[in-house]
Design a protein around this nucleic acid. Sequence first.
DNA 1: CGGGGTTATCGCCTAGTAGGCGAAAACCAT
DNA 2: ATGGTTTTCGCCTACTAGGCGATAACCCCG
Lengths: 237, 237
Amino acid sequence: MPRPTSVPVDGGPASCFDHEVLAAVLQVRQAQVHVLLWRRARPPHAGRWALPGGRLGAREDLEASISRQLAEKVDVRDLSHLEQLETLGAPHRMPTGRTLATTYLGLVPGDVEPAVPDDTRWQPADDLPRMAFDHAAIVEAARRRLRSKLSYTNLGFALAPARFTMSELATYYRAALGHEVDATNLQRILVRRQQIEATGERIGSGPAGGRPASVFRFRSPTLQVTDAFAVLHPPAR
Amino acid sequence: MPRPTSVPVDGGPASCFDHEVLAAVLQVRQAQVHVLLWRRARPPHAGRWALPGGRLGAREDLEASISRQLAEKVDVRDLSHLEQLETLGAPHRMPTGRTLATTYLGLVPGDVEPAVPDDTRWQPADDLPRMAFDHAAIVEAARRRLRSKLSYTNLGFALAPARFTMSELATYYRAALGHEVDATNLQRILVRRQQIEATGERIGSGPAGGRPASVFRFRSPTLQVTDAFAVLHPPAR
DNA sequence: CGGGGTTATCGCCTAGTAGGCGAAAACCAT
DNA sequence: ATGGTTTTCGCCTACTAGGCGATAACCCCG
């Protein structure tokens, strides 16, 4: 049992903490998961790449804060999904003095191109540069969360454009999951789970020809869990 | 997009925040989920029931802090599981001034009886009293987390005693999941997933007679996810 | 010591889901 | 028309959850 320091039992002398919010904003670009990084201009860790975010405002809600900072600093306003990840509290996670960090996973659909500033870029998540502080671990946590939620929720809606063919959708899933995904199988699964539906449209195939593909869309633009996989089901469903 | 207040863009004037850690410690007692509550002696919300926890220490890690406070304040030292839940940051979640809270789920095996102080008691989670601040919502979040993790991990090890019969284990699952659980089916599922194994012992049944039950145990005392339920499997497993 | 009550366990069945793969469909280009 | 390409359909297998009756293994009591 660590007892690092003498601490007031209750209502003792107030101590307060710097608090920042950070987001790993992920997007699938060219069949690869990318993360939005921001190059630090000033020390500490000047020149290293960091996640966008910053100090929590004095009267600001956590989620409002990260939304604001993404809009202000990296001009990202059209997140399709935003959810809280872990709060990091290791005392020396930053050399500048103790700072708690509440981290977020943000997702951007594959067909939008936010205009990002000069000191900002989309980096392949499989090939991270030297990162500031503990930000590399946050990216990994965000990818894990995305991977698992793709399996038991409809979170694909946040990765894909509003309308898509099954081949395109399989590309997004392939990138995010990190393994082969069969478009036929994916279609059966998502239709059975009532996550996607055909729009009735067909879209011409590429220059190489081929049968034109049906266009699908997600039924719901908000997160829903697939309850068929609660696995210890209530009886008599 | 909420822009509640003017906030320094970066490296502006430091603002810092009170930070507390809170835990919903759950235990199945007499076939019901109970939560450890602590009666507030002082205002605000004097007399209401609250979750154990308190201020984060100046040099203390978050998880170390909640462990310490549980040990010091309510004498709970033998948690079988502890994991972080959400961090709450609503500006007015407490009337005493802004305080962020990082919340935890703690579990205690069903066969231990921690000696809790006078101002502390185990309360059935289905029948919460008037709670302080937003603590009722934290209890609900903890119960939801427990329910879902029972389905796709081996978290049952943290609910049950080290050794148990399948009837006993079904009681724990029944209470935590909130619906009927068949002992036969539960045994097949957990054996197939290699979460539990028979010890070879048999234990005499109750005063009413009946066939003596086999004694089982969990194979691992640490959290492991059941990967068979990733649901969008990699091919050729 | 044999029979009835009780509880646990086994075995067989059904239903539902994931995944593989070949055949057919529907397009383009030549 | 013919061949190349991509999508889509249909059928198959494998695996998991869940229901339920039959059997096993004990207790108690007469």
